[in-house]
């Protein structure tokens, strides 16, 4: 344990169970963001293979036609849909939309910013991501 500042570090970020669905959404948002960044870099590398001519392009593209390639793309679909849906929720929140109004707090002090609208937004993003992944699997593995 680092005692200089007693920080939890990455472990604290990756331990969302104590703070409810909002903290889980925070962690998923970070993970999917990193995943999509990785996919973006891989995608640029993949498309650059067109410079190797038709053969090189077809060879590389064949990698995505494997079972592992399909599973990877299903994961990308899920990350993309969750990141988009939850990102819209967060952007609205950042603008002060749907975070409640200031008021004299009453015990037990349920925070207005953690309201049902945002919870619905998070659960909807998760469900949409799951549906999109299932659709993706149906398309890629259906034939």
């Amino acid at each position: 344990m680092t005692r200089d500042e007693n920080k939890e570090g990455i472990k604290g970020m990756a331990n969302p169970g104590r703070y409810g669905i909002e903290r889980i959404a925070y962690l998923l948002m970070r993970l999917t963001g990193l995943g999509l960044l990785g996919y973006f870099i891989a995608h640029v590398y993949e498309t650059s293979n067109i410079l190797r001519g038709r053969m090189g392009w077809d060879d590389f593209l064949a990698m995505t036609q494997t079972t592992e390639g399909h599973l990877f793309l299903v994961l990308v679909i899920g990350m993309c849909v969750f990141h988009t849906g939850n990102g819209i929720r967060i952007m609205l929140g950042h603008g002060g939309v749907g975070v409640g109004k200031p008021a004299r707090p009453d015990y037990p002090y349920n925070p207005a910013s953690q309201n049902y609208r945002h919870k619905i937004g998070i659960y909807s993003s998760i469900v949409l991501a799951a549906v999109a992944m299932m659709y993706g699997m149906a398309v890629m593995f259906g034939e």
């Binding site: 104590r18 703070y19 903290r23 925070p111 910013s113 945002h118």
Partner: peptide, 16 residues
């Protein structure tokens, strides 16, 4: 993430 608001013992709601 809203964790600040969840633990506030005085209902300040910093996230808001």
């Amino acid at each position: 993430a809203g964790s600040c608001s969840q633990v506030c013992p005085k209902g300040v709601d910093p996230a808001m």
